[in-house]
Design a protein around this nucleic acid. Structure first.
Lengths: 211, 211
DNA sequence: CACTATATTCAACAACTGTTGAATTTACAA
DNA sequence: TTGTAAATTCAACAGTTGTTGAATATAGTG
């Protein structure tokens, strides 16, 4: 029985299950048979719909990546013309945290964990992130340069990486913060993570990148 | 021919090669045969020295983990009695960045990438980090509570996670900052990463955690 | 030298991997 | 109903996986 009883479409079921398992165990940690089995589907069906395993992985990644990148563009365009504040740029970058809580479904949570896996992997990083996200990211960095005019490029890029890392570890939902805090904090609490991360990062940017 | 021509000990060669390959492709992305082949060693030898694949992975992780945790303890003990400043706590946490540059060898760089892999993985995180690192980490968090007396525990734990993420992505050395900056910045430049990360994080902590 | 423990290799196992072609079922339009 | 394309299953392939037991080599000791 599939987790979402409304989900009778086998093609989508394969994507959903693959998304969850890839996020948890990585690309090489999951076999097509495990995915097919969990989706209650024949092994050959995944191949019929998505081709090779690598193509299935790309399909899983791309499904929500485009939506994420597009939403980021919309957010940035809503400020059209006006100069973006530092906080607004950070909020646009942290948008993934907002995506999951809006719908509230588990699929997005799994996907964001997968996104963290890709962001922190030396191999996937190069292949997958560039295609969909780089254009928006360059816009964000250009915005940072305007919002922090006194900073040189090197400092901005390093601070951007710190921001990216803080986001990635939160998206990963490793459960570590739950353990370290004796269950006072929860990995899945993206609301609190977002509320505190914005001022944390803004203060860091201002301190390192002047003014 | 092994990369380090002085390294004739096959047992150590297996560890070195496994360290590099596990860091790059993850646990499931590397086979024992690939490791043995790269180390120019028979497949069965890895099993003879380290047992099962999982034990080999643990051996690779533990080799430098203990040294890292011990060095952190020494740093913290050197301040014995005195109250730690926020910057000193952050510096103790960012110690891994210092370990690699001190020796300058590639082995540490590979290991830190592996550490990032473990830190960001939902499964390894739980199994490996707790054993060796949790004691020191709790000391660091206690230090943060003293250095930031007005902050409640929840905020400190979240800020700690942001710090942890910023460190992890840097340790991962994904090469993304190199591409985004058009090779102005380099993933392996731990010196610059450290110099800028300390004030960045300190400012974030102070802003979110009062004082 | 002979003895012994350690180190290393060889050959093989059963299980699992991704992938495919043909057969079968289902959905749907004419 | 018949015809047709899409969806799904079945069975099988060649290669790879982790692991092991026996055989051989090496190093060090008496």
């Amino acid at each position: 029985m599939p987790k979402n009883p409304n989900e009778t479409n086998k093609k989508d079921r394969i994507l959903d299950v693959a998304e969850e398992l890839f996020a948890l165990h990585g690309y090489d940690g999951v076999s097509i048979r495990q995915i097919a089995s969990a989706a209650e589907v024949d092994v050959a069906l995944a191949n019929y719909h998505f081709g090779k395993k690598l193509d299935l992985f790309r399909a899983v990644f791309d499904r929500r990546a485009q939506l994420l990148s597009d939403t980021r563009r919309e957010v940035l365009q809503s400020y059209e013309g006006k100069t973006l504040s530092l906080e607004q740029i950070i909020e646009a970058f942290l948008l993934p945290l907002k995506m999951a809580q809006k719908t509230g479904d588990a699929g997005w949570r799994h996907y964001l964990s997968l996104l963290a896996y890709v962001m922190t992997s030396p191999v996937w990083n190069k292949e997958l992130l560039a295609k969909v996200f780089d254009k928006r990211v360059n816009e964000l960095i250009d915005g940072l340069k305007i919002a922090l005019p006194k900073a040189d490029d090197e400092k901005i890029h390093w601070c951007y990486q710190y921001m990216s890392g803080a986001l990635a570890l939160t998206l990963a939902q490793t459960g570590r913060i739950d353990r370290l805090s004796n269950n006072q904090c929860h990995s899945t609490d993206f609301d609190t993570a977002y509320e505190l991360m914005v001022p944390f990062l803004a203060a860091g940017f201002r301190d390192v990148c002047g003014q």
